[in-house]
């Protein structure tokens, strides 16, 4: 299985993904893993229609995500794994999925969130999940666009 990029981006498939990441990486399928979105008919339909031409989209809940990624259903394809928050990634990792690096793209500001950079704000739950991911030895980097210089997350939130 070829996971080319694991990205946290609460806007999921949007301009930056379509116009930048999918043009600079050889992505063949976007796999969105999110329990809430998997149940939201309207968002699901929208995400399926906005993907770049030629790129398939699969939207799964966490349980389905773990199963599909472990059973190599997408073994032949180059994947972009998209989630809205670090807790989902922690779930995947704790269920045995091997992830070595996470790209943090967009985590929007809202109530109970602390800004880390202009595009990334995190809640206490996010912070805990990031710390655990870090303890798993996973590389956590803020990088909005492919040409941006990656910024190591951990020193920013400690």
């Amino acid at each position: 299985m070829g996971i080319e990029l694991v990205r946290i981006d609460d806007r999921l498939i949007h301009g930056q993904i379509v116009m930048a990441w999918c043009k600079t990486m050889p992505i063949e399928r976007i796999v969105v893993i999110d329990d809430e979105v998997a149940l939201d008919f309207i968002r699901k339909m929208l995400l399926e229609t906005v993907a770049p031409p030629g790129i398939n989209v699969t939207i799964l809940n966490v349980t389905q995500g773990v199963e599909s990624l472990k059973t190599d259903i997408f073994a032949e394809e180059k994947l972009l794994l998209l989630v809205t928050n670090p807790t989902t990634i922690l779930n995947l990792v704790e269920n045995g999925l091997e992830i070595s690096k996470v790209n943090i793209g967009g985590m929007s500001f809202g109530q109970g969130k602390t800004p880390v950079t202009k595009a990334v704000s995190i809640s206490d739950t996010d912070k805990r999940a990031f710390k655990e991911l870090h303890e798993h030895g996973i590389d956590l980097q803020i990088q909005i666009l492919p040409h941006d210089t990656p910024l190591d997350l951990m020193p920013e939130i400690n």
Partner: peptide, 11 residues
């Protein structure tokens, strides 16, 4: 932009 966040929110 087709597919962007403004598009999705407006949709």
């Amino acid at each position: 932009l087709l597919g962007g966040s403004p598009y999705q929110a407006a949709a």
